[in-house]
Write a protein that binds this DNA or RNA. Structure first.
Length: 208
DNA sequence: GTTCCGATTTTCT
DNA sequence: GAAAATCGGAACA
């Protein structure tokens, strides 16, 4: 068996808005005991620092957002709306805040367990939102600050099989009130596991 | 199919 | 005290 390559810290130690679209198509791996729950990343959002009014780091460091300032390639997990966890992976060099929110994945392996964590939902609703995917993959605050560049409970790899070609599209970010001028949400066009939104201006993203 | 609204608790002001 | 990088159920079409 070919061991898939875990993305190294250098992958994340770059401009957040460049890292974000590059994460599309990669595999999010959650190891629970002997089982691996795997999802292909199909929707992300970039969050910056003091230049980004939608970011938790807009007003400087706090207890909650501390991981955004720490090493690239680590998990930033926060709790919101009294119900949900959201998973980000940190970007930029140590000391500069940045993170990419993982908004949706396409289940590739471990679907049975995902359904156990999220019962009574149709296939495409299993992981098509930031709170949904953390629930399906059993990700909570205990994984905050977890190093995602090593072979541990949570990491991201290059996809094992050759990918079919796909288009990356972009829009404004979802669920925020400020920073709507920044079009930092990126997703795989047409993928059924992308969270459904209406009334957003969506355009094709051409990677440089 | 769509829109509207309440849940629930952490975090910050 | 208010808002929150959300979700699911209820009501309606």
């Amino acid at each position: 068996m070919v061991r898939s390559r875990i993305l190294p810290a250098a992958f994340y130690a770059r401009n957040t808005v460049r890292v974000a679209p590059n994460l599309l198509g990669k595999c999010l791996v959650r190891v629970i005991g002997h089982e691996r729950l795997i999802g292909r990343i199909v929707e992300v959002e970039a969050y910056g620092g003091k230049e980004d009014p939608a970011s938790h780091a807009f007003r400087g460091p706090t207890t909650r957002n501390a991981p955004m300032y720490h090493e690239p390639g680590h998990a930033y997990v926060y709790f919101t709306y009294g119900n949900h966890y959201c998973l980000n992976i940190t970007t930029e060099k140590l000391g500069k805040p940045g993170a990419v929110l993982l908004r949706a994945v396409q289940p590739l392996s471990g679907q049975m367990s995902m359904r156990r964590f999220r019962p009574k939902v149709p296939d495409t609703e299993l992981t098509n939102g930031p709170g949904k995917l953390t629930k399906a993959l059993a990700i909570d605050k205990s994984l905050n600050e977890q190093d995602m560049t090593v072979n541990g409970p949570l990491y991201i790899t290059e996809p094992q099989a050759a990918q079919t070609t796909y288009e990356i599209w972009r829009s404004a970010r979802i669920g925020i009130r400020e920073g709507l001028d920044k079009r930092w949400r990126f997703y795989v066009k047409g993928n059924p596991y992308v969270s459904k939104r209406r009334g957003l201006q969506e355009t094709r993203f051409r990677q440089q």
